[in-house]
């Protein structure tokens, strides 16, 4: 950028504006870490839960889901570190953060309602339904198709879950997180690494 102030044309002005807006928007700050973290945690929990429940018939294996608490703690640590390093804050970052916060709150309230009303059979259908919302919206906001497709996959699996009211319903979570978080997570990571050399 030339440092002296000189006369420049209207075309040059527009070129500067265009170039700077592009530079600000071309940043891809999402490296997929949290998508991969949650994708793998849920994948491990649901497959372990189903396998051990099938083998032992013991409900105690449902405690494997406590692993999500560890994931939540790691997520707080990760976000704290990331925000400390951040040199720029975009509107997109704020909107995506808001969308995922809504998802977390809705999941918490829905789990509480279903626990209180004893409608656990509905839980997995709603989990799959809710997984799709932030995933689809993040895909739209970031203009990243794999997340959009992942969100749609969750909704399809949510409809399928209505017809799978056995313990096999647990297994529907695996393709959901695979399509919504694990595959897009690796693709986001690759895109981020490519952009940041």
């Amino acid at each position: 950028m030339p440092q002296e102030e000189e006369h420049f044309s209207a075309h040059q002005s527009l070129a500067i504006i265009e170039s700077m807006i592009q530079k600000a928007q071309n940043r891809f700050s999402e490296n997929g870490t949290l998508y991969l973290l949650w994708g793998w945690v849920i994948f491990i929990c649901c497959t372990f839960h189903y396998t051990l429940l099938t083998i032992t018939q013991n409900q105690i294996w449902g405690n494997i889901w406590a692993l999500t608490i560890v994931a939540v703690l790691y997520q707080f640590y990760f976000l704290f570190k990331k925000n400390k390093k951040k040199a720029v804050r975009t509107y997109t970052d704020d909107i995506i953060s808001g969308v995922w916060s809504c998802f977390g709150i809705v999941m918490g309230i829905a789990s509480f309602i279903m626990y209180k009303l004893g409608s656990w059979s509905l839980l997995y259908s709603f989990i799959l339904l809710f997984y799709g919302i932030p995933t689809f919206l993040s895909g739209i906001i970031m203009r990243f198709k794999p997340l959009i497709i992942g969100g749609i996959c969750c909704w399809i699996l949510s409809i399928i879950s209505v017809f799978v009211q056995t313990k096999e319903i647990l297994l529907l979570l695996a393709p959901a997180v695979l399509s919504a978080w694990i595959i897009p997570g690796y693709l986001l990571k690759a895109k981020y690494n490519q952009q940041n050399g």
């Binding site: 500067i16 504006i17 807006i21 530079k23 600000a24 928007q25 720029v88 804050r89 509107y91």
Partner: peptide, 11 residues
């Protein structure tokens, strides 16, 4: 200004 209009805040 073009940079700052595109983001919320920047260092």
């Amino acid at each position: 200004m073009s940079l700052l209009i595109s983001v919320k805040e920047a260092e």
